[in-house]
Design a protein around this nucleic acid. Structure first.
Length: 262
DNA sequence: CGTTATGTTTCACT
DNA sequence: CAGTGAAACATAAC
């Protein structure tokens, strides 16, 4: 379930399980998950160690003792799984590293939208992908600059990784719900104050979600995520949450609560 | 059987 | 060239 807060949790998980142990084997059972040749992963990972991680948005960069940096993207259904017994390999653990202590690290990916890549430099990779700064660190100034040229729905723009890296579908919905702004409001119509409100809501969603380890039931009651489904009711108005499509994605919002800015 | 799902990439069009 | 929207990708679950 990976958006920014989930991937932050995965980072912490990998930091606490996989670092500073020699890799003795690399195995991938479906090459479609690899952006670079399988032989390259063998070459640059086996007999090396993972030494540290850096997360930018939903991308996780894993530094190694070797010449390359491992890049992991979890897609829609990815998650890490560190386990001991070989027979405990998870059903969708399509990529597996084995460490010198006999433990294994599986990259689970049910829908196979996630992938691994190798790179020489994080900054270059970030630039090539047109990735913005991580939404957690992004300044208000840079956020405004990125929004400046846009003429489309704010919801779609919030999910654009070149605007604020890490915001995905549920976070964008919650940010706009907490901002009381309709997801189809055009960016060009938003006031300075609207944008400040959205920026603050974005930071709040991120910090609250990370603090609660992306465990939705623990989020405060005012989070839309508890009612992000058809037939559910808005905690503010009591009216039904509506579902529409914005930017090609299912979008949930509270019609009376969230103003369409024009 | 048809629809939907937490994401990114590609491609055609403006 | 930049921005936009739709389609594609692969698969499970409802």
């Amino acid at each position: 379930m990976p958006e920014l807060p989930e991937v932050e949790g995965y980072k912490i998980y990998i930091d606490s399980t996989c670092l500073n142990k020699e890799i003795t084997a690399f195995e991938c059972r479906d090459a479609r998950l690899l952006k670079t040749a399988s032989a390259d992963f063998e070459k640059y990972l086996v007999n090396e160690k993972l030494t540290g991680t850096k997360r930018i948005g939903k991308y996780l960069f894993v530094k190694t003792s070797g010449k390359k940096i491992l890049v992991i993207h979890f897609g829609m259904t990815g998650r890490p799984n560190y386990y001991k017994e070989k027979e405990d390999r998870p059903k969708y653990g399509h990529i597996v590293l084995t460490f010198e202590n006999g433990f294994h690290f599986a990259f689970e990916n049910k829908r196979k939208f996630g992938w691994w890549d190798l790179t020489d430099a994080i900054a270059d990779y970030k630039a090539a992908r047109k990735l913005s700064d991580d939404a957690r660190d992004l300044s208000l100034e840079d956020f405004k600059t990125a929004l400046g040229k846009r003429k489309t729905a704010i919801k779609a723009v919030l999910m654009d990784q070149s605007v604020a890296a890490g915001i995905g579908n549920w976070m964008a919905d919650d940010i706009l719900y907490q901002s009381k702004i309709h997801p189809e409001s055009k960016v060009q119509d938003l006031s300075e104050k609207n944008i400040d409100t959205i920026f603050k809501a974005m930071k709040n969603v991120i910090e609250v979600a990370i603090k609660n380890e992306a465990h939705y039931p623990d989020f405060p009651e005012y989070f839309l995520i508890h009612n992000r489904k058809e037939g559910a009711k808005c905690v503010h108005t009591g009216a039904e949450i509506k579902k529409i499509k914005v930017g090609g994605r299912s979008t949930y919002f509270s019609p009376e609560w969230q103003e369409l800015v024009k």
